[in-house]
Design a protein around this nucleic acid. Structure first.
Length: 499
DNA sequence: GTTGCCGGGGA
DNA sequence: TCCCCGGCAAC
């Protein structure tokens, strides 16, 4: 069992995954560099990098070897301009930091927090790329080959894999930067026009997280669940009738949308439990408003400006503000049904997100809870692949069992060789459903939905006709069950004595 | 009743 | 993915 456990842990490992991270090179050339590990001094870090003429840094060969031995890999290059700015959750707050080092072995990222003046390690999945460094025009004599001008995926920060789409990636970076600036400010009373902008900024960011998840479905690269706790969502437009009825659920719809795709994206819901905290929000009680904000200052300002009139400055007016909002405790459990329940009225956001999304699989994931009509069509296309992929879960039948015991029967090894050689002819029968399968990883979300939407099963007439050959049971007998082939032991089609 | 194995589910 | 087992069809 320990071996199984180790396998599962290995499956979740982020080793080898790469992410394109921006450096100070505006031309997009990313240089993977390495410096000795376990350094805490920025000065030392910079001292071990060799500046290049294009502004990037290259480690000396000696340093690279040391880094390889230490297991720490450098994610930042020159200092300070080459550091990746990331967002981490520290003491419940989202802080901007600079990635110093990343240890792929322990999957930890060493982040320097300038504001706190400290340095700490986070898990790679808890570190989110925040913003681009100010771009620097490419040097005339910079990296020579033209292909290096492409934004190559080279810097080795081992975070969940993301799709290597250059344009989308840049959009995500810009969006992250905008989002970062938004998150630093208190409640923003953004006008509707600004709201759409902020949403547009938010959505690619969300999408980036999803993409990083979907890159490897088994990774726990849950895109840092602490984000929605510390990052205020853009406020709803004041007085919007859309939020009049389901005022309380509106933020949940947003939050839910932000995360409700996760149970479908992720195999393991465990990391999500951190989101189950109760969050206090403030709901406007003005008739037909129902606006919900995250800060008391914001809701007071909202009531004053939107409903009581900004000119009201008397004490009575100020006291009135308190009557028009109430404190609401919102459990941050990303309940999918909550998102689904608000789908008809709050569908404006998903539409924007749909436009922002460039990846159809992410779109598929986002749709079902919020756009049932679109979801059905999308599911109808994706259903067969995922469903039939599930059907192929007995693929081991096509593989010879390695654990063939040393059998006293003289023909064991011979028949085993026969079984191995005849496997290709067998596979069409065994994995009959694979013909429907596309080379696409199954999405857990689709699994749950497609059980209902699955096409009718292949006729049970395909049941394998009993062959003439003796099977392990007959050959070895029930008393020597340990000598059976694995398939026979599992009551599957015998792999040792093929027909 | 025995045997082969499909489909489903637990770990 | 491994492993087990209920249940069904062929024998």
């Amino acid at each position: 069992m320990a071996s199984v456990l180790s396998r599962r842990l290995g499956k979740r490992s982020l080793l080898g995954t790469r992410v394109s991270a921006p450096s100070a090179l505006a031309d997009g050339v990313l240089v993977a560099t390495q410096i000795p590990g376990l350094q805490t001094d920025l000065g030392r870090v910079s001292a071990h990098t060799v500046p290049r003429e294009d502004g990037s840094c290259m480690p000396s060969a000696e340093e690279s070897s040391q880094a390889a031995r230490s297991g720490w890999r450098v994610t930042a290059t020159n200092l300070p301009s080459c550091h990746f700015q990331v967002l981490v959750t520290y003491n419940g707050q989202e802080c901007a930091g600079l990635v110093e080092q990343h240890n792929p072995l322990s999957d930890k990222v060493k982040v320097l927090l300038p504001e706190q003046g400290l340095q700490a390690c986070w898990r790679a999945q808890d570190v989110r790329l925040a913003a681009l460094q100010p771009p620097i025009l490419p040097a005339a004599g910079g990296p020579g080959p033209a292909e290096t001008l492409q934004r190559s995926v080279s810097s080795n920060i081992d975070v969940p894999k993301r799709k290597a789409d250059a344009t989308v990636e840049m959009d995500e970076m810009v969006a992250a930067m905008v989002l970062t600036s938004l998150s630093c400010s208190p409640v923003v009373q953004s006008p509707p026009a600004g709201e759409s902008a902020s949403r547009a900024a938010c959505d690619p960011w969300k999408e980036s997280g999803d993409v990083s998840d979907s890159g490897s479905s088994t990774t726990s690269g849950h895109w840092s669940g602490g984000s929605d706790i510390s990052t205020p969502s853009p406020p709803h437009p004041a007085g919007s009738p859309k939020y009049s009825s389901e005022a309380l659920s509106s933020p949940q719809a947003d939050d839910g949308f932000e995360t409700d795709s996760d149970p479908f994206l992720l195999d393991e819901p465990a990391p999500r439990k951190r989101k189950n905290s109760v969050k206090v929000m403030y709901k406007c009680l003005w008739p037909s408003c129902g606006k919900v904000l995250r800060s008391i200052v914001g809701i007071k300002r909202h009531v004053k400006t939107q409903h009581l009139g900004d000119s009201a400055d008397s004490d009575q007016r100020k006291r009135e503000e308190d009557f028009y909002y109430t404190e609401v405790q919102v459990k941050e459990e990303p309940a999918p049904e909550a998102a689904a329940a608000t789908s008809p009225t709050s569908a404006s956001a998903p539409i924007i997100i749909q436009q922002a999304l460039a990846k159809p699989e992410a779109l598929l994931v986002e749709q079902p809870a919020l756009e049932p009509a679109l979801a059905s069509s999308a599911l109808s296309q994706s259903a067969p692949s995922s469903f039939w992929h599930i059907q192929a879960d007995h693929a081991y039948q096509a593989l010879p069992s390695i654990q063939i015991p040393v059998s006293p029967h003289i023909f064991t090894s011979i028949s085993w060789a026969t079984a191995t050689s005849t496997l290709p002819s067998l596979s069409p029968v065994r994995s009959r459903s694979l013909s429907f399968s596309e080379p696409q990883p199954p999405t857990p979300m689709l699994k749950s939905h497609l059980i209902v939407a699955s096409p009718p099963r292949v006729s049970i007439g395909t049941r394998k006709v009993r062959g003439e050959a003796k099977k392990c049971r007959k050959v070895y007998g029930i008393e020597h069950r340990d000598q059976w082939c694995t398939a026979c032991r599992w009551k599957k089609a015998c792999q040792r004595f093929l027909d």
